[in-house]
Each structure stands twice: as C-alpha cells, then as structure tokens.
Amino acid sequence: MPQFFLNKRLIILLVSIIILVALIGFSLKERENLTWPEQFLKDTTGFIQNAVSSPVNYVAGFFENVEDLQNTYKENKELKKRLDELARLESEVQRLKKDNTELREILDKKDSLSEFEPKQATVIGRNPDRWHELLIINKGKNAGIEPNMAVITSKGLIGKVKSSNTFTSTVQLLSSMDPTNRISAEIQAKDQSFFGLIEGYDDKTGYLLLKRIPYDAKVEKGQNVITSGLGGVFPKSLPIGKVVDVVPDEFGLTQTAYVKPGADFYDIGHVMVVKRGALQPELMEMVDEKEEEL
C-alpha cells in the first residue's frame, strides 16, 4: 500500500483526471458568459486570426473568382430569364410594403416580431476538429453582439451566438450536436402554417430535424421553413430551408420533417448577426403565477 502512494506518476495521473473531470463539468454547465481569462485569450488569438485571415481570404477569393469566370456565360443566360420576373416581383413587394405600413398605422401596432437589425461580421476562424461546429467572428460586445442572437447568411439561418467577448464572438452552427440548440420554426403551407421545433441534425444526409409538428398537419415536400419568432429570441421569418420528407414520429402523436437547410454550413465567409427588434420577454414574465406557487 505505501508503495502505491509513493508512485509519483500514478498520483499525478489521478490528480490530473480529477482536475479534468472538474474542468469539463465546469465548462459544460450553462454559463451566461465566459470567465475573463477565457475572454482575454479569445480576444488575443482573435486579433492574430483577424490579421492572418484577411490576406488568406483575399488570395482564396481570387481563385474563387477565376473559377466563377468559367461559368459566367451559362449563369448570365439563366439570370436574364429571371430578370423579367424580378421587375414584376419588386413592384409587388413595394406595394405590399406600403400596404403593410399603412395598415399597421391604422391598427397602431408598432413593433413586429419580424423586425430585426442586421450587423455584418467576417468569419476569422473555425473549430478544426469539427465535433463542435463553432465559428469565430470578428465582432463582439463592442459592436453590440450578445449571446443567443441569430446568425444568418444571405441564404438563410446558420446558427446562434454562443458567447461574445469584447472584440470577437463564437457562433454555434445548427449542425452542431447540442440538445439545448432548439429553434421554434414554422412551415409555410398554402393558406396556413404549422409550427414545430428544430431539434438536431442528421450527420449523414445533412438535413435538419423539425420535430413536434401536429399529427394532422398536411406538410408537403418543398414547403418553406422559416423561424417563427415564438421562441422569444430570434426574429420571425428568417429563412431556414425547405421540407424534404415527412415521417410520423415513433409514437405517432406528432410528425417529424426533414428540412434541407438553405444555407451552406461549410463555405461561410461573411455572416450577419441579427438583433431582434421586438422586446425579448423575460423568463419570469412567461412563467404563470400559479405555476410559481407550485
């Protein structure tokens, strides 16, 4: 027995395993924000990454441009076809927007769930191990970015802000396996909409899982999925993707839809962080008085 305790290496190993478990436990618990040494380190490395990534992106962008040039002719043909339609659509949007503001004025309803304020940011880093799908962007608290804000590209929602430091923030992608990563979503059917929750991501097919759709909802392939704004964090009507397949869940009480995300989770250069225009409800306000008594 005394020999066992004299073995220095074994004791070091045991102590380090204890420290390891404690540290992992500490970082896994729900944290409002990172501790200041972590924030300092992230900002410092962010500064270096920022300095390195802009010339690298410039060179990578040049090669991409050369590749684009090869497809120019074909693309141009296609785009010209769409241009005629665009003019008509634009005038219609213009008219609807005007209608909307007028009607809102009549109703005296000022804030809307779909209102948001976008902030541009550039991706300066990505987690190389790809177990945790995290991006690092070059805007932080200084630019008004706070945890839980939605992050989009021009094609759709890609994730949310996980933590924000003074000059950089970390974005958690939708493709990340995290049970707390839930988004209230809405399927736009012809004349009504169905609600569900985006919970999880299928690694193999690359589809998002939209769960808890009512069993009698007639969801069809190709319908658009947008954020519903009911989660209290994201604004309404950010595009997420399109329905690919619908299956009943294991007990037959609800349905699960497979959603093909509109945005590409890999080729991300510039993102927009979205600040919700409408007020965020406090958790305490949402809890019913009666529930509190219980």
Partner: peptide, 16 residues
C-alpha cells in the same frame, strides 16, 4: 489549454 478555450469552449479535452 489554448485549443480548448479558443476552438472548443470546453476546457479539459485537449488540455489533458
């Protein structure tokens, strides 16, 4: 430690 803090946000995995 740097890898854990900057890329993973779970301290301990690469540190160990």
């Amino acid at each position: 430690l740097l890898f854990d803090i900057v890329y993973v946000e779970i301290i301990g995995i690469y540190l160990f």
